[in-house]
Amino acid sequence: MGNQAGGQAVSILSQKYHILVLMGGWANERPVSLMSGEGVAGALESAGHRVTRLDMGRDVAARIAEAAPDVVFNALHGVPGEDGTVQGMLDLMGVPYTHSGLATSVVAIDKELTKQALVPHGVPMPGGRVVKSAELFDGDPIARPYVLKPVNEGSSVGVAIVTDESNYGNPISRDATGPWQQFEQLLAEPYIRGRELTTAVIATEDGLRALGVTELIIDSGFYDFEHKYTDGRTTHVFPADIPENIAALCRHHAEQAHRILGCRGASRTDFRWDDEQGEAGLFVLETNTQPGMTPLSLVPEQAKHCGIEYPALCEMIVADALRHFGTI
């Protein structure tokens, strides 16, 4: 993706920094992280910064120490880059880094912990419960239709929608292909009919800013990993063609989730909206603390619609990290 603005970008930071872009790793979302990281690295270079690219291996701490950057841009997705592991390592090393810190990352990647944090503050989220995968072969944990998803994976990895018409069986067959074959525990939630919405939030010098609401319209099935990262499988409508009161609620809940969870830099909150139920049909599904920065990613897309070019967005995320760690 590189410099989307073309040519040399105008830097919004008062000085140039040595920025290490941490990407790749060994999570399911490795290919997405590599695309995010390469895009970020190119954008920061276009703004005049010195950039070191690092595809994370087991020697990550030694490699970062050797590079001695001013700040790490964490472009990892999934475990261990998004669950607090890398954040704790960087905290111990005393290296500033972008996006959310250890405690926030531990909570936000765990969908059940996220509910425990947000629901008491009035953020609407689906009900449901965590179940052992082996229990599914004895009977449904909640009434069909329902959604099964890993407790701590991102990018809709390992999601299954169980309906009366699904070919998983009733009860679910041990031989049926699904997340129960990959994960010991899963979160079972009631299936919410309706529309897929998402709102990005970025931290600015003046406070939080919800960028708007995108509706995701898919060609078939549901918004899974393939739809997210395959060009042409999903149409992004921004601003979403929804009533203003629903858009305002999305912006409010996204900022609320960002603030309550203690997110930094950028976050993206995903919603399901049953448009037959009005405001009562809007539910937060999850908040992503390290949303994608690929050519198909939603945060850069929303930012661009709001007049924030890609290099400036990357620098805004870096600036928030530097402010948090007291570097600027």
Rank of each mutant, 00 (worst) to 15 (best):
G6N: 12
Q8F: 08
S11W: 10
L22N: 08
W26F: 15
N28F: 10
V40P: 12
A43I: 06
A61N: 02
A61L: 13
A62R: 08
A62C: 04
R63F: 01
I64T: 12
V71Y: 10
P80G: 03
E82F: 11
G84K: 07
G88D: 00
P96R: 12
H99M: 08
S100G: 11
G101E: 02
L102R: 14
L102A: 00
K111Q: 00
V119I: 14
P124Q: 11
G127W: 08
V131E: 04
K132G: 14
S133E: 05
G139T: 10
A143D: 14
N152R: 14
V157K: 04
V162N: 01
Q182K: 10
Q185T: 15
Q185V: 06
P190V: 03
R195C: 08
T198C: 14
A203W: 03
A203N: 05
G212R: 13
V213D: 05
I218W: 03
S220N: 13
Y223T: 02
Y229G: 13
T235W: 00
T235K: 15
V237K: 10
A240P: 06
A247P: 09
A247T: 12
C250V: 10
R251K: 15
H253N: 11
A254T: 09
S267A: 12
D270A: 13
F271M: 00
Q277W: 06
E279C: 03
G281R: 00
L285D: 09
T289W: 01
T294I: 14
L296E: 06
P300R: 09
E301N: 09
Q302L: 05
Q302E: 12
G307H: 04
